[in-house]
Design a protein around this nucleic acid. Structure first.
Length: 473
DNA sequence: CCTGGAGTTGTCCTA
DNA sequence: TTAGGACAACTCCAG
C-alpha cells in the first residue's frame, strides 16, 4: 500500500512556524508536506525596500523550515501554473494556504481554489493573518465598521483563539521538487543601500520577533501610552515589520498584550487597540478595496491636489530637505532605517498633503518604496486618514503644526539631532549615515547649511484651509 | 424611522 | 499662564 500523497503548503505573508493554522493542519494530517514560495507578479511589483526585506525573510524562514527536517521550494510564475506543475511533480492532492485580504489576492486565490477543486485537488485556505475575519465583524444592521471606535467596542471582549504551537518536525517529501535559487531572484536589486545601511536596523525572522514581543510585553508595554508618541524613545513594539510578513501572528501579540493587561500593565490596552487598528485597516481594504486606489470619500475627487511627484516641493519632501526639522528627520529616518516612528509618519503625511497640497498617492507610493514594514492595508488607510479623504471624522481644519508638534513630542530635540546633521558642531553617526545612504543625484552634504522652510507652517496652513474652503469643504 | 451622541492622533485665540 | 471653546457639517452607529 502506498502512503498518502503530500500536501503543498503555499506560503506568502505567513513566514512562521508557530500559530500557523494551515501548517498545523497539514502536520496534523500526518502527510508529507512541500512548502513552496512563489515569485509572482505581485512579488515583482513590490517596492524596493519591502521586496528586499521579503527576500531576507524568505531566506530566514527557509532555514527555520530546514531545522524541522523540511525545506522550501522556490518557483517563479503565475501561482496557479506553479502549483499545478508541483502537483504533477509531487503527486500532491491538497494545497493549503493562509488567506490574504487585499483585492488582488482575493480574486487570484478564489480563481485558484475553484480551478484546483474542479481538477479534484483539495484547496483549503486558513486564517491566521488577522485576529478576526472581516466577515465575522458586523454592525448591528449587518454592515461593516467605517469608524474605528465602535469596531473596537465590538471586538475588544471577544475570545481570541490561543496561539498554536510550532510543529517540532515537518515531514518532507520523499523526493524534493527542484527549487530555484533565491540569489537569482535578485530581490535586492533596487535596494542598493539595503545591505550596508538598512540591514542593521532590521528585526529579522520569527525567533527575533518572539524575543521582541516577550521583552516588550514584560517591559515597555506598561509605559506604552505615554512613550509610544515620543519618536526619540524606543517605546513602541516595533513589530510591524514582522507582522506584515507573518513572522509573528496577531494572535500571539494579542495574547501577550492581554496577559500584560490582566497583570495590570497600564499601557497594555492601548497596545491591543493598535492591533485592532491593523484589523480595521484590513477590514476596510476587504470591504472597500478602492481605498488603495482612489479617495475613499468620493467628495474629495473634486479637490485638486498636486499630482506631480517631480514638483520641487515634493522632491524636497522625499529627500528630507523641506527645512521643517520634524518632517526632515522623519524622512531621513525612513530612508536610513526603512521605518519611521508613527508620530513622524503623521507629521510628514500632513505636511505633504496639507502644507504642500500634494496628493496622498505620492506619499503612499514613496512609503511603499521605502518601508520594510510596508503593509497594503495599513499604508492605504494611514495615507487617506492623513489626507482627510479616508474613513474618519478628521475635521478639515486639523492641520498638524510641525513646530508645535516638535515642541510637544521632541522637546529637547533628541529625535531631530539624531537625523539632521546640518548646522550641528558634532553631528551624530546616524545623522551622517543619511549622506552615505542617499543617491549621489540628491547632491546633499552635511556641510551645507540646513535649508529654510520651503513652506512655513503658517503659510501652509492658511493655504490649505482656503483651498478647502473654495472647494466647499 | 427617528434621535442623539460620538468621532485616534489638533490648533489657535481669547478671556 | 493657562484652560476652554471655536473651528463645518456630516456620517456612523446604537437604541
Amino acid at each position: 500500500m502506498s502512503e498518502a500523497p503530500p500536501i503543498l503548503l503555499w506560503l506568502r505573508r505567513d513566514l512562521r512556524l508557530s500559530d500557523h493554522p494551515a501548517l498545523s493542519a497539514a502536520v496534523a494530517s500526518g502527510r508529507r508536506i512541500v512548502p513552496v514560495f512563489i515569485r509572482d507578479a505581485e512579488v515583482d511589483a513590490l517596492g524596493a525596500a519591502p521586496k528586499w526585506r521579503l527576500g531576507l525573510g524568505v531566506e530566514k524562514h527557509r532555514n527555520a523550515l530546514e531545522k524541522c527536517g523540511s525545506g522550501l521550494v522556490l518557483r517563479t510564475g503565475t501561482p496557479l501554473a506553479c502549483l499545478q506543475r508541483l502537483i504533477e511533480e509531487t503527486g500532491a492532492t491538497s494545497v493549503y494556504w493562509s488567506r490574504l485580504y487585499d483585492p488582488v489576492s482575493i480574486s487570484r486565490d478564489r480563481e485558484i481554489k475553484e480551478t484546483l477543486k474542479a481538477q479534484g485537488v483539495e484547496a483549503r485556505s486558513f486564517g491566521g493573518h488577522l485576529l478576526f475575519e472581516p466577515w465575522s465583524v458586523e454592525t448591528k444592521t449587518g454592515g461593516f465598521y467605517r469608524v474605528y471606535s465602535p469596531m473596537w467596542r465590538a471586538v475588544k471582549d471577544r475570545d481570541v483563539a490561543t496561539p498554536l504551537a510550532a510543529p517540532v518536525r515537518i515531514a518532507p517529501p520523499e523526493i524534493w521538487p527542484k527549487s530555484e535559487r533565491l540569489e537569482e531572484w535578485s530581490l535586492d536589486a533596487a535596494m542598493a543601500r539595503g545591505a550596508t545601511i538598512v540591514r542593521p536596523y532590521l528585526r529579522l525572522g520569527e525567533a527575533a520577533a518572539q524575543d521582541r514581543l516577550a521583552s516588550f510585553s514584560n517591559g515597555a508595554i506598561s509605559a506604552y501610552v505615554a512613550q509610544r508618541d515620543i519618536p526619540s524613545v524606543d517605546g513602541t513594539s516595533g513589530l510591524s515589520e514582522n507582522l506584515t510578513l507573518g513572522e509573528i501572528s496577531p494572535h500571539q501579540c494579542w495574547h501577550a498584550g492581554m496577559r500584560a493587561h490582566l497583570d495590570g500593565a497600564a499601557g497594555a490596552e492601548t497596545f491591543l487597540k493598535e492591533l485592532v487598528w491593523r484589523e480595521f485597516a484590513y477590514h476596510l481594504i476587504y470591504h472597500t478595496p478602492h481605498i488603495a486606489q482612489r479617495n475613499w470619500k468620493p467628495d474629495w475627487d473634486r479637490f485638486a491636489w498636486n499630482e506631480d511627484a517631480g514638483h520641487p516641493h515634493v522632491q524636497a519632501w522625499m529627500q528630507g530637505r523641506t527645512g521643517i526639522p520634524f518632517v526632515d528627520a522623519g524622512m531621513r529616518e525612513l530612508y536610513v532605517t526603512g521605518r519611521m516612528h508613527n508620530r513622524a509618519r503623521m507629521i510628514v503625511a500632513s505636511y505633504l498633503t496639507k502644507h504642500l497640497l500634494s496628493h496622498w498617492k505620492i506619499g503612499l507610493k514613496w512609503f511603499e518604496a521605502c518601508l520594510v514594514d510596508w503593509d497594503p492595508a495599513s499604508n492605504a488607510m494611514g495615507w487617506q486618514w492623513s489626507a482627510g479623504s479616508g474613513p474618519d471624522a478628521t475635521p478639515y481644519f486639523r492641520v498638524f503644526n510641525p513646530v508645535t508638534q516638535l515642541d510637544k513630542f521632541d522637546p529637547v530635540r533628541q529625535y531631530t539631532n539624531r537625523w539632521i546633521a546640518e548646522g550641528q558642531a558634532a553631528p551624530s553617526d546616524t545623522a551622517l549615515s543619511y549622506f552615505n545612504a542617499i543617491p549621489k543625484g540628491w547632491a546633499l552634504s552635511p556641510d551645507m547649511p540646513y535649508p529654510s522652510a520651503i513652506v512655513s507652517p503658517q503659510e501652509g496652513r492658511q493655504r490649505a484651509l482656503s483651498a478647502y474652503e473654495t472647494r466647499g469643504f
